[in-house]
Structure formats: structure tokens, C-alpha cells
Amino acid sequence: MKCKTIITELADYLDEALDPILRASIEEHLGKCKDCRIVVDTCKQTIEIFCNSEPAPLPQTTRLRLHEALAKRLRRVRA
């Protein structure tokens, strides 16, 4: 297996969406190729960092405007 194949299959590998035979071939390659191992590991860390990041608090003015617009709409529905 070539390093380029690891890159091509990287997304499915990280999403555990590969068939077991291809997955085993990739893992065999990763056992021997340090560069590919680092790329796979840092790509996995990239996803984790983003998906585990907290969204920033809503700016106060943004939150006020949102809730005012909602209140206005809800009042209209209730009327």
C-alpha cells in the first residue's frame, strides 16, 4: 500500500467506514510508516479539537435582538 492511498482513504478510515480488509491493510501500513501515522493522528486530533470546542457566548446585543424578534413574533402568533 502506498502513502497516497492512506490519504485517499483517510476520511473513511477516521469515520470507521471502511471494510475490514482495507482497514487492516491501512493499519499494517501505519505500523511501518511513521509519517502516515503522524498524519492520521494529527488529522484525528484536528477533528477532536473542533468538535469538542465550546461555542463562544453570544454577544449581549446579538442575544437581545434575537429574543426581541422572537418575542415580537410569538406575541403576534398568540394575538
Binding site: 469515520d15 470507521e16 477532536e48
Partner: peptide, 13 residues
Amino acid sequence: MSSSKLDPVARRP
């Protein structure tokens, strides 16, 4: 890294 097999992406709930 001791193993070629990586754990799945660790997503916090």
C-alpha cells in the same frame, strides 16, 4: 505511538 491502530475520534457528548 505504540500501536498502528488508532482509537476512534473522541467526541465529547
